[in-house]
Design a protein around this nucleic acid. Structure first.
Lengths: 197, 197
DNA sequence: AAATACCCTTGAACTAGTTTAAGGGTATTT
DNA sequence: AAATACCCTTAAACTAGTTCAAGGGTATTT
C-alpha cells in the first residue's frame, strides 16, 4: 500500500484538527494495512480487540450471539468509518462481538498501545479522538432515542433514506437484525411498501 | 461554595490523568456552582445546552416527549456523574431533551466554550475527556446490547442489582420509562417477583 | 450442468408487552 | 382537617411483532 493511500484517513482527521507534516509521518508509522476476505472475522469473542480499524475499502458488520444463539447486528460500517468491538478495544478485555467482513476489504489498523502512546505525544491527535468520539457518542444516543418512538416500518424507511447505498449492498437479514426486527417481518414491510408505491 | 468542595471533581479527573496545581486552578476558574430545586429543568427543548454539568449532590433524569406526548427517560444520574442533553451540548444546537432535577441538587457547571478553550491549552484535560467519553460510549453500547437479548423482568432485576440505591430513590414510573416498559407492566413484574421470594 | 447452500417470501398460530379503565394510598397544598 | 394531586396496583381487551413451517429463487461450489 503506497503512502498516498493514507490521504483519505488524513483528510478525515483534517476535518477536525491540523497536523504538522511530521505528525502525519508519525501516524503513518503506526498504521498497518491489511487485506480481509469476505466472511472473515477481524474481531471475535474470546480475543482482545487489538486494533482501531479504519475502513479504506469494503463493508463490515459487528454482531453478537445471545443465549438462544440469535444474531444481533450492532453496527454496519463502510468506507471512511472505524469499526471494532469498541468495548473490548477500549478496556482491552476479551471481545463479545464478532466483526465480520461483508465484502472483500482493505483496512488500516492501529494498535491500542500505539494510539495511546501517540495521543500522549500529539495533543491534536488526542483532540481528534476526543472530538470524534464525543460526536459519535452524541449521534449514537440521538439515533437510539429517535428509534424508541418509532415502529418497525418507520425505522426501515429512515434507514434507507439515511444510507441509500446500503439497502442494496447489505443482505436483508443483516439489516433486519440491525433494525431490531425479524427478517420475516422486514420482508413483509418491504412488500407492503412496494405495493403502496 | 468553598474551593475544597471541588476536590470530588478533581479526584474524578485524577483517576485518569495527572494535573499540575496550576492546571487545577485554571479548571476551578471556569466552574460555576449552581443550586437547583426539585422539578427544575437545567436543559429543555428549544434552548442550547450551555453546560457540562457535574453533579455534586442530588439526582437528575433526562427525557424527551415523543409525538404522542409520551415520556422516554434516557438517563438517570446521581452524584459524581455528568448530565446534560449531550447531543445539544456537543453540537451546540437546540436541545430536544429535558434534564430535570429529581431532588434538590448542587451542580458544577462549565460552558462548552470554556471547556473547548481549556482542552486546547491543557493536553491532559483533553485526554481526560477523550478517555472518559470513549469509556462512557463503550459502556453505553455494551449496556444497550445486553438489553437487546433481555426481557422486561431481566432488565428490571439487573437494574436493581447494578444501582441498589436508585430503586428506592427514584419514582417507579421513571424507572419503567428508563427501562423501556409501561409503568403498569413494571408494577406487575414487581408484584410477581415479591410473590416468588 | 447438477448439487448445495443461502436468501427472501408468505401464511397462520402465538406471545410479550401496551392500553384503557378503575380504585386505593400517600404526600403536598389550601 | 379537608382537598388536591400524584403515584402505585390490578384486571381485561388488544396489538405489534415473533416463531414456526413450507416453498421458490439465485449464487456458489462441485
Amino acid at each position: 500500500m503506497k503512502l498516498e493511500e493514507y490521504s483519505k484517513l488524513i483528510e478525515n482527521i483534517s476535518r477536525y484538527v491540523e497536523l504538522t507534516h511530521e505528525e502525519e509521518e508519525q501516524i503513518f508509522g503506526i498504521i498497518k494495512t491489511t487485506r480481509v476476505r469476505k466472511r472473515q472475522f477481524i474481531d471475535q469473542p474470546g480475543f482482545i480487540s487489538g486494533y482501531r480499524n479504519y475502513i479504506y475499502q469494503g463493508a463490515f458488520r459487528s454482531f453478537f450471539l445471545d443465549r438462544e444463539g440469535k444474531e444481533h447486528t450492532v453496527q454496519i460500517a463502510i468506507e471512511d468509518w472505524f469499526v471494532s468491538d469498541f468495548y473490548s478495544y477500549i478496556t482491552q478485555t476479551p471481545a463479545t462481538l464478532f466483526v465480520e467482513a461483508l465484502e472483500d476489504a482493505v483496512i488500516f489498523q492501529m494498535t491500542y498501545r500505539d494510539i495511546e502512546g501517540l495521543c500522549k505525544k500529539i495533543h491534536n491527535l488526542s483532540e481528534y479522538f476526543r472530538i470524534t468520539t464525543e460526536r459519535a457518542f452524541a449521534y449514537s444516543r440521538k439515533r437510539a432515542l429517535s428509534n424508541l418512538s418509532k415502529d418497525a416500518e418507520q425505522r426501515y424507511v429512515e434507514f434507507t433514506e439515511r444510507y441509500p447505498g446500503m439497502a442494496n449492498r447489505i443482505p436483508q437479514k443483516v439489516i433486519a437484525s440491525y433494525l431490531g426486527m425479524s427478517p420475516e417481518f422486514l420482508s413483509r414491510i418491504r412488500s407492503q411498501l412496494s405495493r403502496h408505491n
